[in-house]
Design a protein around this nucleic acid. Structure first.
Lengths: 366, 366
DNA sequence: TTGTAGGCGTTATCAG
DNA sequence: CTGATAACGCCTACAA
């Protein structure tokens, strides 16, 4: 059978759907394609979705041509409506302002894009009251799953109820009552690493400074690990300070530091900061006191921000593998979406100690 | 600014849809509500959308009850399919890693949420080749409009073609050939303010350090304003250095600084940094040279990041009203969506000079 | 004031 | 292998 080349102009020739179309130009629909190809909608649909179904070569080419000529691409909305799946993933973030969240977001976003998913973003702005609203809003858009970096105290019920059978993966903050994959830094090891480093460098009195715990799992875990370390370590004393948010925060913190160092003297005192927000606050307090990192006080801080090398003598940090966290979270979710059924996984990634001046004992003449 | 809030669809009665529903539980549809209330779908729809239409009190209550009882809320997907509008706004960002982008994102996100819109995020990761893909992906989800912080050189065609009649607002980066609202810092004034401040403080030789321009409007504008300033100012010399991205970036920059200062001597030399990314790179270069801000070199940098106070003697910055930029961009867009028809607006917001140690002449013993 | 019916763009089922 | 046809959940003429 000779190939009856259709008399139509070559299709693939025109990659640009229509850059000069009048603004109102309607997107091509499957109907248009069907008409153009002289076949039925069903055929076009099959051509698009079930490539394995063998179509008559002739028909296949005709459809292909028409699709190309019209610059057709199927409407995800209509698809979602029909299939109940949307190629959308909902990402709820506690606070886009937090560099950690952003870094995770970045990793997740890339992984999603690669897998053909788009991200719908909902930022809580640290107002955990909006958590339920966020999930519902996202759910109503038929997101296929959630990546959550936002669990407050009793958010489990919220999630459990609202997710309506959609897979969830938790990042950084877990919830014991919730069946879900969980991706996070290995907080216990990280704290041990950080505190161990401080002790090794000769700092004897350690203060762990954290944001108010408020039942946030990562905060609790880090703090607990810190206490555990202090108890087990020889000749090291440890204590925790919760730095309340708000206006007087820096002053209160400065006062706490002064007191802590006074009671420690003549032993050398250092601080372990729970995240970059606190590290910044600590920097403010130090300035107020006229103290210098590595001299009057040692410091290791969670989160290896890009400015860490440039503050004081350089801040020693625990770098979180943020990109991987985001990527793994997204991939976990996508696997579930593809039907993987397994008991909830826990993925704990190691942190990395980046040593800089702020924790170096040699600099410190008590 | 008029309150763009849409009429609420949800009846407030029952905040908890059903936290204990079996995971597979189907979302209630308008049909379920109609059945439960013993009315037709049309009536329910009217109750939801056209509150002004008078319904018989009896019927209204029945519908309301049913809605509440079932925890019903309409499916935005179905709505979008029917109405062609989706309550979605597409946000394309050049680089989520850039704090400026994030800050804008934050402002925009809040404004959108308040107006009942959700944000679909697409991050280019500085790969401007994906711009077209981004816009098309977003468009296929029927986003009602775009907020773009990403225009490369000839992106105008892309946008113009792909947006298909959907309103666009540009943030920070404009494109002359494109009819669209534009929200940005007033770059010219900001540069004048910054450079003026340096001159005033006795710095005589000014180096403007910028990322490669690559046709990005904001970069071009700032650089042009800087040159204009240098020409017009008495006894001030100015020059521009484009810092290429990549591995050797910091070294190359350090070398440039050294050369610049050498040719300037004994006049006092200062640097104007085009954004926080460059400022960080400058900090790296300074460290390599063993120089100190405010002593060997003066500095004013664009973007008032939260770490600026803590680097060296504190970095003098031009603070951009990022939150407002994001908010205004979103509101601009939303106004258009509500039918406002006007020629493209330009909203230029003033920056604010935040003086810290890095630019203070008094510290500098040449 | 309310109900009926048709369609938005797809996919899936069932005949042919 | 292909083509009608019926949903998916919602909105809106039009009719009652």
């Amino acid at each position: 059978m000779p190939d009856p080349r259709p008399p139509r102009a070559r299709a693939a020739a025109r990659p640009t759907p229509d850059a000069s179309a009048p603004p109102g130009a309607r997107r091509a629909t499957i109907d248009d394609v069907a008409r153009a190809a002289g076949v039925s909608k069903a055929t076009v649909s099959r051509f698009l979705n079930h490539r394995e179904t063998l179509l008559t070569p002739d028909i296949a080419t005709r459809v292909e041509t028409a699709v190309a000529a019209l610059g057709y691409s199927p409407s995800p909305m209509a698809r979602a409506l029909k299939r109940g799946r949307s190629r959308l993933i909902g990402l709820v973030v506690a606070d886009v302002t937090n560099p950690f969240s952003v870094a995770v977001l970045r990793g997740a976003e890339r992984a999603c894009q690669q897998a053909g998913y788009l991200l719908m973003l909902f930022n809580l702005g640290n107002d955990s009251g909006r958590e339920r609203a966020a999930i519902e809003a996202l759910a109503s858009y038929q997101v296929e799953g959630f990546i959550l970096n936002t669990l407050g105290r009793d958010a489990g019920a919220v999630v459990d109820g609202a997710r309506q059978g959609r897979p969830v993966v938790l990042v950084d903050r877990r919830h014991s009552g919730l069946q879900a994959d969980f991706v996070s830094l290995d907080n216990a090891s990280a704290v041990h690493m950080a505190a161990g480093h401080l002790a090794e460098q000769g700092w004897r009195d350690l203060l762990y400074v954290t944001e108010p715990m408020r039942g946030v799992s990562s905060r609790l875990e880090r703090e607990a690990a810190f206490r555990a370390f202090a108890q087990q370590a020889d000749g090291v004393r440890g204590q925790t300070f919760e730095s309340q948010d708000g206006d007087g925060a820096t002053d209160a913190l400065a006062e706490a530091l002064r007191a802590w160092r006074a009671q420690a003297a003549p032993r050398r005192a250092a601080v372990l900061s729970s995240n970059s927000v606190i590290t910044l606050r600590l920097a403010g307090a130090m300035a107020r006191l006229g103290w210098h990192w590595g001299r009057e006080l040692g410091l290791v801080g969670f989160d290896d921000t890009d400015w860490a090398p440039h503050v004081g003598p350089g801040i020693t940090t625990i770098a979180q593998p943020t990109d991987d966290l985001g990527r793994l979270a997204a991939n976990c979710l996508i696997e579930r979406l593809q039907g993987l059924v397994l008991p909830p996984r826990q993925i704990l990634l190691p942190g990395q100690l980046v040593v800089r001046g702020s924790s170096l004992g040699s600099l410190a003449p008590a």
